[in-house]
Design a protein around this nucleic acid. Structure first.
Lengths: 232, 232
DNA sequence: GTACGTTTAAAACAGTTGTTTGAGGCATTG
DNA sequence: CAATGCCTCAAACAACTGTTTTAAACGTAC
């Protein structure tokens, strides 16, 4: 029933959950993405997971805590990847083997996002969509955990972009980061404004294709000259 | 049941709803934005509106129909504004009094969005946020109405941008529109990725400030030269 | 006055929600 | 053997959901 609890020193400490708990997590993840937190009932989750209803409140404390667990399981490794990328870039820049420009900073976000999107065993595109739901739906269940960890990541990226674009003011750097990450984030999440229940000319589900189009767009936007404002 | 249905030819036919119905609409709009469709109960709506519970099912058919009404009340005038802008641009371009470039097309979206954001009597920033929730939550209640009207708008913008950027392929035009509208849309909606429950360096709630920063960003992105892709 | 359609009021409807309970299974440990 | 943990199960809990029903108030027309 429980099987092997490997706890490799370097590798991720995955086997934190029993098999029942894992099946709940996986069914919940899928349903939360499709239906949202409120619209997903515990009965539907346990039914699709093939486990008993009470197992949810046994393994996780409550529905909110389950949601938090679903999110944290995917978010934390991904956040670590991002931090690793930033550390590596700083190291390479210090060693003189890489330029510390906007493209390098953007790629510190793109590479983990791309890797995540392509790896179903870590949630794949499903988690990215969940993340984007979390963003607009503003769940109480995640406020504390997220604002701490995500806040740290954001300040790292802000610092990095400021260093890459020294001619910009702090306010401008914040805006470029805000806008640039917004495009990339929603592009990876597949939030296709143009589609909106209909068909779109853009087949925005292939991660490599997303990168191909979104990176030039973002880099050009971040490097935009000031005051290219509206004329009328 | 029907009351006075003024159908002025030019002006907006506002007094479509009785006062009770209007108070329901307004309370519902606010709550749907804050809590989402599923998490907002009719009892909470009617309580905040100061009307009886049964009034919802009397004036509107059901909760889903109420949601549709809430959305349509704001969406339709705004969509008409967008179409008017596009028509006006085409007219001015034909007359030789305006250039048909990417900036002109982008402003056909920015001006209505800006006007809407600044006009509380038309939903203001609240509706833009509601719109963005609708986008990710994919409600059945809106599928038909939205996909038709929004689909028409999108094809108009696509056509316009293709005309403004004739050197790009149709696929590239679709991507630029997708990415550009994505940034603008979420910027106006206040979906601040960097914030996410915490504080952000960007005070992204002032519509004029949004325009000031997002327009140069989008224009630069749309005009990006091909193949500015990642290096590694 | 009565009669009418319109709007509101309170109560009840059947169904679903998250959560808890208490009994029991099943392996490991003494 | 009994005892101990961990876990699963079916059933029940109170609270809440959208919706319907029934009665009453309202202004207007006859």
């Amino acid at each position: 029933m429980k099987s092997s609890f490997l706890s490799a020193d370097a590798g991720p400490a995955e086997p934190k959950y029993s098999e029942t708990a894992l099946r709940i997590l996986e069914a919940a993840e899928r349903l939360f993405v499709e239906l949202g937190l409120e619209a997903t009932s515990l009965r539907l989750i346990t039914q699709q997971a093939g486990v008993n209803l009470a197992a949810v409140n046994y393994h996780f404390r409550s529905k909110d805590a389950l949601f938090e667990a679903v999110f944290a399981r995917r978010f934390e490794p991904w956040a670590r990847d991002c931090l690793r990328e930033l550390d590596a870039l700083e190291a390479r820049a210090s060693a003189g083997t890489a330029r510390f420009d906007a493209e390098a900073v953007v790629m510190c976000y793109v590479r983990p996002a791309l890797a995540l999107s392509k790896d179903p065993s870590r949630g794949g595109a499903l988690f990215v969509r969940l993340f984007s739901r979390v963003l607009v739906e503003n769940h109480r269940a995640l406020r504390e955990t997220l604002s701490r960890e995500w806040g740290h990541l954001v300040s790292r990226y802000t610092e990095a972009l400021g260093r890459a674009l020294p001619e910009l003011t702090a306010e401008e750097v914040a805006w470029r980061l805000h806008l640039g990450f917004s495009v990339m984030f929603h592009a990876f999440a597949g939030n296709d404004i143009l589609k909106l229940f209909g068909r779109s000319a853009v087949s925005a589900r292939d991660p490599d294709l997303i990168v191909k189009h979104v990176v030039p767009f973002v880099l050009a936007g971040m490097a935009a000259t000031r005051g290219e404002g509206p004329s009328g």
